[in-house]
Amino acid sequence: MPQTPVSSDVSQPTEPPLSGFVVAIDGPSGSGKSSVSKQVARTLRYAYLDTGAMYRALTWWCLEQHVDLDDAAAVTAAAGDFPLEIGTDPDAAHVLVGGVDVGEAIRETRISTTVSKVATVIPVRELLRRLQRELISAAAAEHGGVVVEGRDITTVVAPDASVRILLTASEQARLARRSRELHGDAEATSVSATRSQIVDRDRLDSTVSEFTVAADGVTTVDTSDLDFDGSVAAVLQVVAAART
């Protein structure tokens, strides 16, 4: 897949509508958003796009380029020359930056604890929003549909999506899930170590996007008391209802 540089032009021309069947899923960290979205895409044989990975990849790029993350203008400039390549196969959703596979690196703590500094820069969000719409339409046109997940997909990136879902869960459930993912258990010390990557990041990101309360027309799916299979089934039920 060729690299897709991000244009630095932040003007807002009239945009074409999205192509294909688009399932937009938003939600806070630890809600099960990524794993559930991937499985829904597999089940439907749709493409899959993780927009959060794009912000993480840009954060990695800024750090590699020694960009001051507290300098919004510098971060925006870096976003305007961002050599990103991102896959949309749910079984091989690779992320390359300048030809470097950063799939594992962007999940490291140094990225998780700084990505909000990049994701809260408004011009950067606009640049990536446009790129995301291009990727969504291309993937949906090729595969008949796409499941795209993030924090502002249902409201900003793809408010015209065929299905819009807010996937949520209680703070306790979200902390426990991410703790098991990162530390292998949900003991008090592990949960405490995970808190900054969940609660603090959500607090910062909520200054630029609303992903805790469903907007009009968005269906809420609460996964607090659901296991993985139950969460996938709940999302698929919403999709099936929209297609009837």
Score class of each variant (00 low, 15 high):
Leu182His: 10
Asp152Phe: 10
Val10Cys: 04
Val148Thr: 12
Pro90Thr: 07
Gln3Gly: 15
Glu15Ala: 14
Leu204Gly: 05
Asp50Asn: 15
Ser224Arg: 02
Val22Ser: 00
Ala139Gln: 00
Pro16Ile: 01
Ser31Lys: 00
Ala92Ile: 03
Arg110Ala: 13
Ser192Leu: 11
Ala105His: 09
Leu226Tyr: 11
Asp160Ile: 04
Asp9Pro: 07
Asp216His: 12
Ser231Val: 01
Thr168Leu: 07
Val221His: 00
Ala47Asp: 08
Thr212Tyr: 05
Ala119Thr: 11
Val6His: 10
Ser190Met: 04
Ile122Lys: 03
Asp202Cys: 05
Val36Thr: 14
Ala53Cys: 09
Gly98Trp: 13
Ser206Lys: 14
Gln65Met: 15
Arg45Gly: 12
Ala193Ile: 06
Ser179Thr: 02
Thr51His: 06
Glu142Arg: 11
Leu127Trp: 02
Ile106Ser: 04
Ala92Pro: 01
Pro28Met: 09
Ala186Leu: 05
Ala240Val: 01
Glu104Ala: 15
Arg243Leu: 11
Phe228Lys: 08
Leu49Arg: 14
Ala158Ser: 04
Gly99Glu: 14
Pro90Tyr: 08
Glu187His: 09
Thr154His: 11
Arg203Ile: 08
Phe82Ser: 00
Val36Ala: 08
Ala233Phe: 05
His183Val: 04
Leu226His: 12
Ile86Lys: 02
Ala234Ile: 02
Ser35Gly: 06
Ser8Lys: 06
Val163Cys: 08
Glu108Lys: 15
Val208Pro: 00
Glu149Gly: 04
Thr120Ala: 04
Asp202Ile: 06
Ala193Gln: 13
Ile136Glu: 00
Met1Val: 09
Gly52Cys: 07
Pro123Arg: 06
Asp26Phe: 06
Asp9Trp: 12
Ser190Asp: 02
Arg203Met: 09
Ala173Gly: 11
Thr59Asn: 09
Gln237Gly: 13
Val239His: 03
Met1Gln: 13
Val118Ile: 13
Arg130Glu: 07
Gly150Asp: 04
Ile153Gln: 03
Ser37Met: 00
Arg151Asn: 08
Ala214Gly: 05
Val147Pro: 01
Glu104Asp: 14
Ala79Gly: 11
Val121His: 05
Ile106Tyr: 03
Arg177Phe: 02
Ala141Arg: 02
His94Phe: 15
Tyr46Arg: 05
